[in-house]
Design a protein around this nucleic acid. Structure first.
Lengths: 195, 195
DNA sequence: GTCTATAGCGAGATAGAC
DNA sequence: GTCTATCTCGCTATAGAC
């Protein structure tokens, strides 16, 4: 066994982050106290500072980890030479990835205003990189003539907003399976880009 | 003149609401103190309680006023017998109305979780009523055969998310006029619904 | 690594003078 | 209608025992 005798530190750190994410999503960063987090983790408030230098860093780390995971997952999608197939792949990927992480998505969008300027800039750069990827796909589709769009930049914004909106209403075990939701949204995306 | 000698009370009330809305949008409800609001209004903290019983009521009043204004404006749109013309009218109305009130839109969405349950229920009912209006338009389009959609409920969610998303990037005096933005979004909406 | 205890501060809200 | 002063509470963060 590689575990040390006092191994709870290896488990408490991730647990602090998990609890913080859930509470931030539910009540908002500013409305959640370090005491609340500690209570839900099952430690005293002072012990939290072994895992984060302060509350702001805790928020930033959660948001950065989420955005990095998103970019990494995007980068490991199988290559897709056909622009329309790539757009379908992106659509289904976006819905699946985001619906599986509703707390992180919510926090990463809603709490931007609670980041210090330097931290804000770093998260925003990651978000722009993701948007630019979609815009690139749309531009390729326009080039190949498979897609017709008045403005690829606005289309990228519009599609991401539309797809992320799934998180506001989708609940597992509801009327529709996620696969069916993907189908329906892909149908609307495909038509919206004139394919 | 109808103004009384001590007329500042007639102007301070609206000003408190205006300042609170701006600060809530910028920093979040929980992060803004009554002292901050008072300072920006130019009164002492205690004086705020002449205009609102407490901070929660201030938030709720702002959100309710916004939603009521939205529903009222929707109800006074000129009647539109053709389903497709009605959908275009809705699209342009939504973009215009929401882009002119970005603070209220932002607060009314982001701060839902800071409402007491009873207040939350009232705001949610108003939002659902707005969504139902759009879904009704889409259903009429399907009936008349001018629109093709796999699911009108999801389409309503998708279109509202897409249109409201304009607020995340649109700034007056930017690359595109609002009229041009309306055109571009209407093009995508029209195609997305299979018209 | 976690605890107790506490410093230092700022919050929401109220009382009463003017 | 607005002010000053204050009550009471909870916050972030730290110190030091174990």
């Amino acid at each position: 066994m590689a575990r040390k005798k006092n191994s709870s530190g290896e488990i408490t750190g991730p647990r602090v982050r998990q609890v913080a994410l859930q509470l931030f999503a539910r009540h908002g960063f500013a409305a959640v106290s370090m005491r609340q987090i500690a209570q839900q983790v099952g430690v005293q408030a002072g012990a939290l500072y072994l895992y984060t230098p302060d509350k702001q860093s805790l928020l930033f780390d959660l948001m950065q980890a989420h955005m990095q995971e998103l970019l990494d997952a995007l980068a490991t999608l199988p290559p897709c030479p056909d622009p329309l197939a790539a757009l379908e792949q992106f659509t289904r990927f976006h819905i699946r990835f985001h619906s599986a992480r509703s707390d992180a998505v919510f926090v990463s969008y809603m709490e931007l205003r609670n980041l210090e300027p330097a931290n804000f800039a770093r998260i925003e750069a990651m978000r722009r990189s993701y948007e630019a990827h979609l815009e690139g796909l749309l531009a390729k589709g326009v080039e190949s003539g498979q897609v017709t769009l008045p403005d690829t930049k606005l289309a990228a914004f519009a599609l991401i907003a539309m797809l992320t909106g799934v998180n506001t209403w989708y609940r597992e075990g509801g009327r529709l399976s996620l696969a069916r939701v993907e189908d329906i949204y892909w149908d609307m995306v495909r038509k919206a880009v004139g394919a």
